[in-house]
Design a protein around this nucleic acid. Structure first.
Lengths: 234, 234
DNA sequence: TGATTGGTGGCACTGCGTGCCGTTACGATT
DNA sequence: AATCGTAACGGCACGCAGTGCCACCAATCA
């Protein structure tokens, strides 16, 4: 005599089951530890069979991750929809928006995930691998657009890594600051400061040369400030 | 009746066993595939017991990796030995040298590892996690030295990610180019071109202002070249 | 020669992930 | 409303990764 199936087959039912599993995994991992929590514990807490867990997640580590596959597709769609002549820097910054949405829209879960990925080696490695897929995606799209330049491949690789690093840094600051919903715009603004550090292209339109001059002065000021101020004085 | 133990307990014996396991793993993964190769297959090919494998490696994925823990310690030692007033850019570039040594000193194994990490998802994720530990190490050391600057944390994160990305890009180019030993210097030179893209500090000494001016002109030229040349023309 | 130490091999065990299959609920068709 | 097809579910069994435990053997020392 099998236990009755509690849910239907609709999309809402699937989302509900998935949400139950994620919440159960986050709670159990946080309370009892990652290694001490088995998949059986998660499925028992969520009220589903063990086999069902592996129909929603590839493995135990993925139970705490949001859906990165659809997010990757959205990022790629931003690049695909952009015109070839669109200035590069704003496009790159805009392409990161879907990732921000993924985290900023659910602050509580994002913070719980952050704490787990900070403290548990297996989940930290998983996160690093996930972040690397975004870096590779940015790298591919940038390489297409920078192939003609001298050191274009290098600039593409460096820019992709820079954007992803700044993105994660902004998210991290937002999370340690309490993940307040009203600070979401500040989080995005923090990220966009990386614009001044990108090596590949200024974010100003091509016909605004005064803006270029302004930017050049900023770069010069920053460089002069750097020299003689390298490292911390004791 | 147990099989006789074939090796002693010396350090050479341990290195020999480890080398046999790495070579067996590389060969079996390449020939029969990663998922199709079990730890039993590796230990049988290396002539040791299954239990011994897990005394040399944390898991199946680590059997193809060089020793990143000692390499991380060497990188950190470079930072620890540097004076606080040393210019930042050359220090950062120099800190990457131990990683180059790790790969450039064994071209054949490096190429075999590269092919495996390129094609096998589990090993690619493992590699990404390993690279991320270097990125975090650079980030910590740079954050110490940039804490006083405006946007110092952001600059530290971006610079760390840039250096690691350029490093891996140079290694990758060297590997796909055949991993020729005589091209090792060219590999390092490719990496050092990232210097022109680093946002944090010029690599010139603090008293050479003419060099700063030269660099500023290079930056300006690159920026002007960028505007109006964004993206590829069809 | 006897005791100690440290690496090794074998064994058993837990837990992850998967293939397979019977079952069950939902939706569509008539 | 009865029926059929489909898709998700639960359960079972299996292979394999990784670990704790213990006996064994070789080298060193008393």
């Amino acid at each position: 005599m099998a236990a009755p199936v509690r849910r239907g087959r609709s999309a809402e039912g699937r989302a509900e089951v998935r949400g139950d599993l994620v919440r159960a995994a986050l709670a159990l991992f946080t309370e009892h530890g990652y290694d001490e929590t088995t998949v059986d514990d998660i499925t028992a807490a969520a009220g589903v069979g063990r086999r069902t867990f592996f129909r929603y997640f590839r493995g135990k580590e993925d139970a705490v991750s949001p859906d990165h596959e659809t997010c990757l597709a959205r990022v790629d769609a931003v690049f695909a929809a952009a015109h070839d002549t669109e200035p590069l820097a704003p496009l790159v910054l805009r392409a990161a928006d879907p990732v921000f949405d993924l985290y900023l829209d659910s602050p509580a879960e994002a913070k719980a995930r952050f704490e787990l990925t900070r403290n548990i080696a297996a989940l930290r490695d998983r996160e690093a691998a996930s972040v690397d897929t975004y870096r590779r995606l940015f790298g591919r799209r940038l390489r297409e657009r920078l192939a003609a330049r001298p050191d274009g491949e290098l600039a593409a690789a460096v820019t992709a890594a820079s954007v992803v690093a700044a993105h994660n840094m902004a998210l991290r600051s937002w999370l340690v600051d309490g993940a307040r919903p009203e600070a979401r715009d500040a989080c995005r603004a923090t990220f966009r400061r990386v614009d001044a550090m990108l090596p590949v292209a200024p974010s100003v339109p091509a016909d605004d040369l005064s803006a270029i001059a302004t930017r050049l002065e900023r770069v010069a000021a920053r460089m002069e400030n750097s020299v003689g101020n390298v490292g911390m004085q004791p």
